[in-house]
Amino acid sequence: MSLLDIKQIHGGYGGMNILNGVDLTADRDEIVVIIGPNGAGKSTLLKAAFGMLKINDGTMTFDGEDITHLRPDQLVGKGISYVPQERNVFPSMTVLENLEMGAYLRKDDYSRQMEWIFELFPRLAERRKQQAGLMSGGERQMVAMGRALMLEPKLLLLDEPTAGLSPLFIDQTFEQVKAINKTGVGILMVEQNARQALHIADRGYVLTTGRNRITDTGANLLANEEVSEVFLGG
C-alpha cells in the first residue's frame, strides 16, 4: 500500500464537481509530478489531498489511515505538508518566524531541522530576520518550502513551486526538491515547467478536465509523443 492513496475521488468547491474520479498514489521515496492544461484541476487535486475540498465520492488514505474527510489542521499532524501556489508565506513575519509557525505543532526541539533547512536554502540563513513579504519571489518560495518542512513531513505537496521564477531559480528549485526527496520526504508536485519537472520525476500524471488522462514514469511520459505534442508544447 502506498503512502498516499487516492481512489476515484470526486469533489469540488461546493457547486459542480471539479474532480471527476481521479486516482493517484505517492510514496516516500518518489517524486510524483502532476501536469495538464490550465483548469484541469491540478491544484484542486492537491487541495483535495490536503483536506481543503468537499469530497463527494471516493476515498483517500494516508499511511493506511482513512483521511477522506479530514481537515487541513488534522492532516498536518499526520505528516502531510502543503505549499500553496500563492499566498504561501506570512508576509509581515520574518523568515525565522515563518519557520517557527511551520513548527507550531512541535513540542520537541526543532533546532536541528531548522539548521538543515538553512543548509538547504543558504539564502534564508543570511536573511532570517527579514520580513518574508519584502523578499523576492524565489526567496519567498524557499521560505514557503522551508516552513512546510519544519514538521518533518512524510509527504510534501507543492503547487507550482517554480511559477514566476527566473530560469536560474527554476533549476535551483528542482535541485532542492530532489535534495528534499533524498531525505525520505515524498514529493507530490504540480508543475507548469512540465518537461523539466518530468526529468526529475519518478512518475507523472497527466490530468485533463478532472480525470486521469495518462499515467506513467517520468521518462516514459517525456518519450510519449502525445504528451510531448499536446502537453509539453511540442
Binding site: 490536503f50 481543503m52 481537515r71 487541513p72 489542521d73 498536518v76 499532524g77 505538508s81 502543503y82 500553496p84 499566498r87 504561501n88 508565506v89 506570512f90 508576509p91 509581515s92 513575519m93 518566524e97 517557527e100 509557525m101 511551520g102 507550531y104 505543532l105 516552513r147 512546510a148 514538521l151
Partner: peptide, 21 residues
Amino acid sequence: KMGKAMRAMSDNVDLAAACGI
C-alpha cells in the same frame, strides 16, 4: 508562541490552518 500565531493568522488564515495553528 500564541502572539506569533495571532500575527500569522492575521496575515493568512489558510496558511495558518495549513501549519496546524
